[in-house]
Computed example of a mutant assay.
Amino acid sequence: MSMTFEHTTLGQRVLFGTGQAAEHLTAELDRLGATRPMVIAGERVQAEAWSATAGITAALWWDEVVMHVPVEVAEKARTAATEASVDVVVSIGGGSTTGLAKAIALTTGIPVVAVPTTYAGSEATNVWGLTEDRTKTTGVDDKVLPVTVVYDAELSKTLPLGMSVTSGLNGMAHCVDSLWAPRTDPINQALALEGARALALSLRGIVADPDDMDAREQALYGCYLAAVSFAGAGSGLHHKICHVLGGTFDLPHAQTHATVLPYVLEFNAPAVPELAGRLATALGGETSAGDPAGAAVTALRELYTAVQAPCRLADYGFTADGIPEAVERIVAAAPASHPVPVTEQNITDLLTAALTGDRATVAA
């Protein structure tokens, strides 16, 4: 069968090494000729930030990091960066931290060097997101793609175990969504499937032994592949759902992605059996010639059981009262190329299932 597609590979430098964050960050700022870095690090990762920046002197240290990047926070940070004559932004933390750095880059053009401490993957995409008036808006702009990513598994050691799981499953959602997102192609799918394999193994390893540095390295490797595939494939239904739940209802980012993922997979998988079968294999499940969709869903559910992943949006404050507004917003944002036609009824069913943890209500 012939293949016809267009694929763009984003230009980015990756420096990977456990215990080498400070060394790599110092060398990278020297390479860039940057002398006035703005360091963004939230309160939870101050110790990691001081360790990673041991070889540099910050012109500005910023610790106001807010989930979903409210516009007003972005504006404050942009103004501060300009007033301090910053020539590079160093983000140390998870997706919210990277998102704020991207918001600064979007309007100022200041380059970003990302030092992730979670498995969010935002550091490897040219996608930005800002929230205003209960609406999260995303866009694509190469200015926001970090010029360099510094990965150091040591920096993830203080991430609480539950957050390690939900953050890793957020990365898994990038993989699964990339299999059928609007711009997907065979390269994105290959990256996504390898990312899913690495994340499935690494999350089991981290839960079994939080000090397993090999597993933590594999998790960073997997989340990077997940994000690269997502950057190429674009945002599918899963991400549209989670952007609404996060931006409009202020649900926590990683936990929401982790909770919603199995329901979206169960919704989509029957329409893409070949991809579902490959995903089942990547997740370590038993493939089934007769029911590849079921095999993929079962493999993901088995992973969720093994790592004690969340399964109910109700646990994060979402209620049935919010479903009608969420459905309206999701249906309006859903990609036209989605494998299963999106309707108010099937999205209502999906959200109801995700709210209560009841798989029986999911039906395309």
Rank of each mutant, 00 (worst) to 15 (best):
H253E: 10
P186M: 00
T57H: 14
S96F: 00
A181S: 13
S167C: 08
K143C: 01
A320D: 14
A309T: 08
G222L: 05
Q12K: 01
A306E: 13
G129C: 06
Q218P: 12
A101W: 00
A47I: 09
L199F: 07
S202W: 04
E286T: 15
Y151N: 15
A59S: 14
H68I: 09
V327R: 03
A198P: 12
T158V: 10
V90A: 02
T135S: 13
G322W: 04
A105N: 12
D133W: 01
T131I: 06
A332S: 12
A333Y: 04
V228H: 03
L60M: 06
S235M: 14
G290N: 13
N170G: 06
S235K: 08
I323Q: 01
Y221Q: 10
T166M: 04
H243G: 08
L155A: 07
K76N: 12
L179I: 13
T9Q: 10
D133T: 09
D212Q: 05
F5V: 09
F16N: 02
V88S: 01
V14C: 11
T118I: 07
T26S: 15
P339D: 00
T319S: 15
S96T: 04
K240N: 06
P146W: 00
R278Y: 03
V65W: 09
A77Q: 03
P270V: 00
A231D: 15
M38W: 00
E75I: 06
C311P: 00
P324E: 04
L350Q: 05
G55Y: 02
A336G: 07
V89M: 03
V89Y: 01
A271I: 03
T361G: 12
K136E: 02
V327N: 03
T131A: 10
V113H: 01
M38C: 07
H239N: 10
L130E: 02
G290H: 11
D211M: 04
Y151V: 05
P270T: 03
V69L: 09
P146G: 06
S122L: 02
P186V: 04
G277L: 02
F230S: 08
G234H: 10
T98P: 08
L193Y: 07
G222H: 08
D152W: 07
L279S: 12
T82N: 05
A103Y: 06
T137S: 13
K76V: 13
E194P: 14
T356H: 14
V65P: 12
Q12E: 09
A269E: 05
V260Q: 00
I206C: 12
A58W: 15
S288Q: 11
S122I: 04
A198N: 10
W180Q: 04
T148I: 06
G42D: 01
P252D: 00
D141Q: 08
T8N: 05
L60N: 05
V39Q: 01
V69Q: 11
V147Q: 13
A353C: 13
W61A: 12
C311I: 06
M213C: 09
V39F: 05
G285I: 06
S51L: 15
S178I: 07
I40R: 00
V73R: 08
V144R: 03
P270I: 02
G11R: 14
L279Q: 08
T82D: 01
A103C: 12
P116A: 04
A208M: 09
